[in-house]
Amino acid sequence: MEEKEITVNVKKYNEKDGVFWKSYRVKADRYTQMTEVLRRIKTEQDPSLSYRASCHMAVCGSCSMKINGIPSLACKTMAFKVMDEKGEINLESMDYYTEVRDLIPDVDTFYDRMYKVMPRLYADEEVIEGKEEQRMLPEEQKEVWKFQGCIYCGLCVSACPSVKADEKFLGPAAHAKGYRYIADDRDTKKEERIDMLMDSAWRCTSCYMCYEVCPQDVQPVIAIKKTRSHLDDYRGPETDVITMARKHDNAILELINDTGKIKESSLYLKTFGFGEAIKDSINMLKSGKIKYAFTKDNNVKNINEIKKIMGDKK
């Protein structure tokens, strides 16, 4: 097998020296995983290099880090695939989490988010006592398993813009976990879960970052969308976000149903009310952007097609 010397630049950190970069030359071949590269550096060159790694097969979620700026699992990343034309690779600790040592951040905040969503099944008493057998259809198992696939690697939270901007957002992984139990008919706390997750679900921007970085293809953003689809079942407190989500949702649905299109200005009025609209109009006037504010497009001509397609919600 053809070996090649590569250069690995690691952003190191410790309390005493702060942040500094260190480079290592390592021999690798096309089968060498980044966890193996790190192991070689640690056992042969720099024993002080600190990182997390366990299963080296992408099921334990330990070796999360940024590789060339991309949130990745080191074990799932082959050195030759990511080195640049000069044979260089950059490794950094994940974003968002507090740095503690080299490639090891403090991810407690990730775990805390998971614990918040009651991440465990509450089965029927009869089942727990062993009096009754649980059944589960294969389709349902498939749906549950999809979102149960989360390996607690923390990459999605590290990359999520809403997590950084909004402390009330539970984050992608916790939502995948939370929805996994909503989707599980063996669980007896579905209503409680919907109430617990709904406000946070509307704090996601649907930017698909979590979908992109997830090494297990869990697609947390899809779990969030599926949770939102239970808005009508929500019985919890009417938070600002919930109230606006309802208004905004109903306004859009009504517009699409009636006209086949979204008329931003009508939507705006319906969601925010007249007072807020006036304030914003003044800003738009100032920036010379008011002239298109009342542009109105044609409705869909064959609106019956739209109505028939929309039919009942499912």
Binding site: A123, L137, P138, Q141, R186
Partner: peptide
């Protein structure tokens, strides 16, 4: 199963 393990299922 009672604790939530999502075992693969028969039809």
């Amino acid at each position: 199963d009672a604790w939530g393990a999502p075992f693969n299922r028969q039809p």
